[in-house]
Simulated scan of single mutants.
Amino acid sequence: MKKIRLLHIVQCAGGVDCYLRMLLAHMDRHRYVQIILCSKDYSENDYRELVDEFIQVDMCNSLSFKKDVKAVSQIRKLIKNCHPDIIYCHSSKAGGIGRIANIGTGIPLVYNPHGWAFNMKTGWLKSFVYLWMERLLSPLVTRYIIISNYEKMSAVQHRVAQAHKMKVIFNGIDMDAVDKMSGTVTRASLNIPENAYLIGMVGRISRQKAPDTFIRMAALLKDALPHAYFMMVGDGDQRDEMERLIKDCGLEGRVIITGWVNNPLAYSGLFDQAMLLSRWEGFGLVLVEYMKLGKPIIATEVDAISDLITDHENGLLVEVDHAEQAADAVKEIMNDVSLRNKLISNGMMRANAFFDVQRVAREHDALFSKIRNLYNR
């Protein structure tokens, strides 16, 4: 059978980059010609063994009429040159540019927003603009791939698309990679005592991930748990602000910020407890990694997190921006061994049962095959 020519259009890096690399690594190279058309934020070296063609264009993250029109024009020409059977757009910016560039070509287009931009707490005006853009561009989508039930429900409620047009494919992780990465970083290399009780979070140091709530939680625990240390694995636009907050709270030496690292799993493998205190979350893939690593989890009860975490079954759920609840949850897990063991056991079972990236690849393959057959390309 002729290979399916699949053109990926991507703009933002970060989580989408990780998602795409995992997906490509597990899709059948004998069935696909994989082409990536991406922004300058992507590295060709990362995709050398994963794709057949790597093409970069200038796509900016912010809205810019002049730059966006130029990007649409370039991408439209590239679409015609690449002759894809299916176009797969990832995230809202690439989704907008890719859909407009594809107008009139007759090529089926799949769009994965990786979390709706209008659900992000970025102010009512931005949310309003993002929502109307999604509504206006919705007729240009053949099928949506949605990463959680929450995101699907939200799209229906906001009249973005009808339910039958959306396919929910939960994110997944490379289970073997998690096992291989564990143990490659030590506490000694980070100047953390071996007997410390380490509470950590992995994520951007940005408003979404609520690093300020994490630090305020640490401040509430520093005297009650003198052997507790706190780690933030990542970097971001709020790092300077968070470093000032750490100093103001008297937590210097007790809170470690790693900055950007290539192997965050190796750091989260050191945690005694793992956290995700996001203010909004399209999925929260790091929670699956925590579960696979056997870490008891504390997370906020917001958006798609409830698709992954059931309170007091495979994690504890707390309110957004509630440092006191998070601190109480830390103590509850520390003091209740049976609860801690239950959370760990159930989490590992759930990760293995539902969130393997091989399942993600199979579900993508089934959808793309169906679309190709429908369009007789």
Rank of each mutant, 00 (worst) to 15 (best):
T122D: 06
G123M: 08
G123N: 07
W124Q: 11
W124T: 14
S127F: 01
F128S: 14
F128T: 14
Y130S: 09
M133P: 02
E134Y: 13
E134D: 15
R135E: 11
P139M: 02
P139A: 04
L140T: 03
L140V: 04
V141G: 06
R143G: 02
R143D: 09
R143T: 02
Y144P: 04
N149T: 11
E151W: 07
E151R: 05
S154M: 11
V156H: 04
Q157H: 05
H158Y: 15
H158L: 09
R159E: 13
V160Q: 09
A161Y: 02
Q162F: 12
Q162L: 12
H164F: 12
H164E: 15
K165F: 01
M166S: 04
V168M: 08
V168R: 10
I169F: 06
N171R: 04
N171K: 03
I173L: 10
I173T: 03
A177P: 00
D179P: 00
D179E: 15
K180L: 13
M181H: 11
G183R: 13
R187N: 02
R187V: 06
A188M: 06
A188W: 01
A188N: 12
S189G: 01
I192K: 05
P193M: 06
P193A: 09
P193E: 05
E194N: 08
N195E: 15
A196S: 15
A196I: 09
Y197I: 14
Y197K: 11
L198W: 10
L198D: 10
I199K: 00
I199V: 14
G200W: 13
M201W: 03
V202F: 00
G203S: 03
G203Q: 06
G203M: 05
I205G: 04
S206I: 00
P211D: 12
D212R: 12
D212F: 08
T213D: 07
T213M: 00
I215A: 01
A218L: 08
A219N: 15
A219W: 04
L221E: 10
K222D: 08
H227W: 01
Y229L: 03
Y229D: 01
F230V: 06
M231D: 04
M231C: 10
M231F: 07
M232F: 06
G236R: 09
G236S: 11
G236Y: 07
Q238K: 13
R239V: 02
D240L: 06
D240K: 11
E241I: 02
M242I: 11
E243G: 00
L245V: 00
L245E: 04
K247S: 14
D248T: 13
D248C: 06
C249P: 00
C249H: 06
L251Q: 03
V255E: 08
V255T: 03
I256M: 15
T258L: 05
G259D: 10
W260A: 08
N262W: 04
N262D: 14
N263K: 11
N263Y: 05
